[in-house]
Simulated assay, not measured.
Amino acid sequence: MKIINRYLSGVLLSILVISCSKKTDTGVINNGGNTNPPVVTVATFSNPLLSSGPDPWVVQKDGVYYFTRTFGDRISIYPTTKMSALGNALAQTVYTPPSAGIAYSRDIWAPEIHYLQGKWYIYFAADDGNDVNHRMYVLESSAATPVSTYTFKGQLKPTTDKWAIDGTVLNYNNQLYLIWSGWQGDNTPGTQQLYIAKMSDPYTISGDRVMISQADYAWEKSGSSVNEAPEVLTNPQGKVFLTYSASSCFTDNYALGLLTLKDASDPMVAANWTKSATPVFSTNATNGAYGPGHNGFFTSPDGTENWIIYHANSSAGQGCGDTRNPRMQKFTWNADGTPNFGTPISIYVKTAVPAGEQ
């Protein structure tokens, strides 16, 4: 009898378990009606992207991002398919200048990579070891990617040939323009303006320069009266903006300003550029971002998000050296079409990677 009772008890327990489980229309058992969604893991990164990297720049083509920055003695490029994983990319040197004594052999600053008219161009500032001789120069490559061998094309020289750094290119209505930071005179350190000139091709300036911006507000004059590092930004409606860095980079007040080009106007006319009265991106001590500036722009791999890349110091008073490190964050557009960069996000805090990276 004990054996039979044990047998019956086992059968009854099996029936009870089965009766408590329900099958869906597809035949899958849903135990106890548990409808908790599965845990979704979101890929993240944190700033800074590298421990050092002043004057960051990135260009993207065919699914690859090409990052570069100031090294001083060479130009190197980091290729990566994920900007959030820039720290895993290998820097590959594409240009080392000639020996000392050449006009462009020393102090190589702020290189930018541009793909124009089917070729790669790298614009950079350099001198012979004497800062007053800084000028803009350009390299050219016809290779499939910018990680290649380059031909030195020469100096980008307007009629008024003065100190020049931080060159970038505006392609507007099928006309190329070079925009850079320079001195008005021959030896005026500490005072920098923004200039523009037409280009007859990607390595030649035609005609003279026109000044489109100088330090007007107090926030542009901390330490020095500086406008530098111009960068072109176009919104989805085709409106053209120019970010720039203001004040001395030796101060924590280094910040981003914004110029707006009047619609359907001539960029060579200074009056067609309107300056915002306040900075659009500035120091956030709480988040470990001091003197943010010298930026660039890129989009997420799936093309749905806009991102700004910039450098900043992690502590106060670190100045204008290699402690400046590259950071990135997503930005949006205001209702009037202007960019909204927000405030520098905190370092070492996990942030979702650009859309399409997962």
Results as ranks from 00 to 15, higher is better:
6 R>F: 08
6 R>V: 09
11 V>Y: 05
12 L>W: 01
15 I>G: 15
15 I>K: 09
22 K>M: 15
23 K>S: 11
23 K>W: 01
33 G>S: 05
34 N>G: 06
36 N>I: 10
43 A>S: 09
43 A>L: 07
44 T>I: 12
49 L>E: 00
49 L>W: 05
51 S>N: 15
52 S>G: 15
54 P>C: 12
54 P>R: 13
56 P>I: 10
57 W>P: 06
58 V>E: 07
59 V>G: 09
60 Q>R: 11
60 Q>S: 08
61 K>Q: 12
63 G>A: 07
65 Y>R: 08
68 T>I: 13
71 F>G: 13
75 I>S: 10
75 I>G: 15
80 T>C: 04
83 M>V: 07
87 G>E: 00
90 L>N: 15
91 A>R: 02
93 T>R: 09
94 V>W: 04
95 Y>P: 14
95 Y>R: 14
95 Y>Q: 14
95 Y>N: 08
97 P>T: 08
98 P>T: 14
99 S>Q: 11
100 A>T: 14
103 A>Q: 05
109 W>F: 11
113 I>D: 02
114 H>E: 02
117 Q>C: 00
119 K>C: 00
123 Y>H: 12
124 F>Q: 03
124 F>H: 09
125 A>N: 10
125 A>Q: 06
126 A>R: 03
129 G>H: 03
130 N>D: 03
130 N>R: 03
132 V>L: 09
137 Y>L: 09
137 Y>H: 13
138 V>R: 02
140 E>Q: 14
141 S>N: 06
144 A>M: 10
145 T>L: 04
145 T>D: 09
146 P>C: 11
146 P>H: 02
148 S>K: 00
149 T>S: 13
158 P>D: 10
163 W>C: 07
172 Y>I: 03
173 N>H: 14
174 N>R: 13
174 N>A: 13
178 L>K: 04
179 I>K: 05
190 G>L: 03
190 G>P: 06
191 T>L: 00
195 Y>H: 06
198 K>F: 03
199 M>L: 14
207 G>L: 07
214 Q>V: 08
217 Y>K: 14
217 Y>E: 11
222 S>D: 13
222 S>V: 15
223 G>T: 14
224 S>K: 11
225 S>V: 11
226 V>K: 12
238 G>R: 05
239 K>F: 01
240 V>E: 08
241 F>I: 12
245 S>I: 11
246 A>C: 12
252 D>A: 10
253 N>W: 00
258 L>N: 04
259 L>G: 10
262 K>I: 00
262 K>C: 02
263 D>T: 15
264 A>R: 12
268 M>G: 12
273 W>C: 05
274 T>C: 04
275 K>N: 09
277 A>G: 13
279 P>S: 06
283 T>W: 06
283 T>Q: 12
288 G>M: 05
290 Y>K: 11
292 P>E: 04
296 G>Y: 00
297 F>L: 07
300 S>L: 05
302 D>E: 13
304 T>Q: 11
307 W>I: 07
307 W>C: 04
309 I>R: 02
311 H>Y: 01
313 N>L: 02
313 N>V: 04
313 N>M: 00
315 S>F: 02
315 S>L: 10
317 G>N: 10
319 G>V: 13
324 R>D: 09
324 R>W: 03
328 M>F: 01
331 F>K: 02
331 F>P: 07
333 W>Y: 00
334 N>W: 08
338 T>V: 12
338 T>Q: 04
343 T>N: 09
344 P>I: 06
347 I>L: 10
350 K>I: 06
356 G>K: 00
358 Q>P: 01
